[in-house]
């Protein structure tokens, strides 16, 4: 299935990157309004060849109204930060900081409103996301000095507002439910836009699989084609 989906994906251009998202999670519905869950996720980049992130998330949601849901979550992100390589004006090497693994803490608060017309559900999710990166000592190579130097990546926090508009289509007598969404990440300016198209597959109501394609347009960085696969277990 992976191979087939990979073949169907558009060939990334030289400037674009491609990667994989694999996730697994579980959730429990305590009552009609309160649900809590736990998710784990893995991401890759560099045309599926390099691990980029492993994350663990705990989340909880509460249905305020039949059409309005509130939620909070915390995620521990363990990320493989990409290298940075800078040059002098005459194109000679200046400084190289190789890739390194680091930790980030992410807190989310979200509100999701939904509206159903026949078998199509339209939902809008507004998410405030705060991510804190603790300081970390890393090595970088100074080509002028010809030596490795300790360098502190200072701790900092970042606030992002994420707005997602999603359409879900419940096809009669079919276990596959397609969906599509567009999401905007805004801090001081528009940072990212994500366009997603995928399909959910439910097995005996407890097991849910999803497969999707995500195209991410990033301000200042290469755009990314992502293939996503997920499994969740409800109990």
């Amino acid at each position: 299935m992976l191979m087939v989906c990979s073949a169907l994906l558009p060939t990334p251009s030289l400037a674009d990157d491609a990667g994989l998202i694999v996730s697994a999670g579980t959730s429990h519905k305590f009552n009609k309004k309160l649900t809590a869950g736990f998710d784990a996720e893995f991401r890759s980049r560099n045309n599926f060849r390099t691990a980029e992130r492993v994350s663990l998330e705990a989340n909880m949601s509460y249905k305020l109204l039949p059409w309005l849901k509130a939620g909070v979550s915390y995620a521990l992100l363990i990320e493989n930060n990409q290298e940075t390589l800078s040059y002098h004006d005459d194109n000679t090497y200046n400084n190289w900081r190789p890739s390194y693994w680091g930790v980030r803490h992410r807190f989310n608060v979200m509100l999701t409103g939904s509206y159903k017309v026949q078998r199509v559900e339209l939902s809008l999710r507004e998410r405030w996301q705060y991510t804190y990166r603790p300081s970390k000592m890393i090595d970088s190579f100074d080509f002028d000095e010809g030596e490795w130097e300790d360098h502190e990546v200072k701790g900092k926090g970042k606030n992002v507002l994420r707005s997602r508009l999603q359409l879900d289509w419940d096809i009669p007598k079919c276990k596959f439910d397609p969906y599509a969404s567009v999401e905007f990440h805004t801090s001081k300016k528009l940072d990212k836009t994500r366009i997603i198209a995928g399909v959910n597959y439910a097995l005996k109501k407890k097991h849910n699989f999803k497969l999707y394609y995500r195209y991410q347009l990033t301000n200042g960085d290469p755009n990314i084609h992502m293939l996503g696969m997920g499994y969740s277990f409800k109990f």
């Binding site: 893995f42 890759s44 560099n46 599926f48 060849r49 390099t50 990409q82 290298e83 190789p98 890739s99």
Partner: peptide, 8 residues
């Protein structure tokens, strides 16, 4: 996925 580094 995790076996290749993408550093220069």
């Amino acid at each position: 996925s995790s076996c290749v580094k993408d550093d220069t």
